[in-house]
């Protein structure tokens, strides 16, 4: 469903889109800003934050997630990262019901590190497979 091949999304044609789903709008937005900065401030990556509920509470909004995924969908796939409980479950439920763009997928990745890895990789023009595995691989970086 909803195969939006690049129409009125704001992603680079052919580029992989990234959606950050957090319980908190400021968390999602800040992590998006951080990832873009660490990727060299590139404007070429379509990234959207979907944080909190539509009425500004802490929680998850299926509507914000769907809007964000459609906005970044340029036909090359959309990678979604989620933080906790309902963020993860809502993305999964939307995927199961085909309510997200065709190439959308939830990636098992740490939220901040995964977002940075995904955006850096997407900025190189990599395909969705490479972007998703870069995000998951962020788990491999040990801190102690």
């Amino acid at each position: 469903m909803s195969p939006r091949e690049g129409d009125d999304g704001d992603g680079t044609p052919g580029g992989v889109g990234v959606v950050l789903v957090s319980h908190s709008a400021p968390v999602a937005e800040s992590v998006a800003a951080l990832a873009v900065q660490l990727a060299g401030g590139t404007a070429s990556v379509a990234i959207r934050a979907a944080g909190g509920t539509a009425d500004g509470r802490v929680g998850t909004s299926s509507e914000l997630i769907t809007q964000a995924a459609r906005a970044v969908d340029a036909g090359a796939g959309v990678v979604l990262l989620a933080d906790l409980g309902s963020a993860v479950l809502t993305v999964k439920a939307l995927l199961e019901d085909d309510e997200l763009p065709g190439g959308a997928r939830l990636v098992d990745a740490p939220f901040v590190e995964g977002a940075v890895a995904a955006v850096v990789t997407a900025s190189t023009g990599a395909d969705v497979e490479a972007v998703a595995s870069a995000a998951s691989d962020a788990y491999a970086y040990r801190k102690t």
């Binding site: 509920t53 509470r57 299926s62 309902s86 479950l89 809502t90 999964k92 939307l94």
Partner: peptide, 10 residues
């Protein structure tokens, strides 16, 4: 799914 905002919604 659309209105709860917590895990019980999905």
């Amino acid at each position: 799914i659309g209105s709860v905002g917590g895990a019980s919604g999905p």
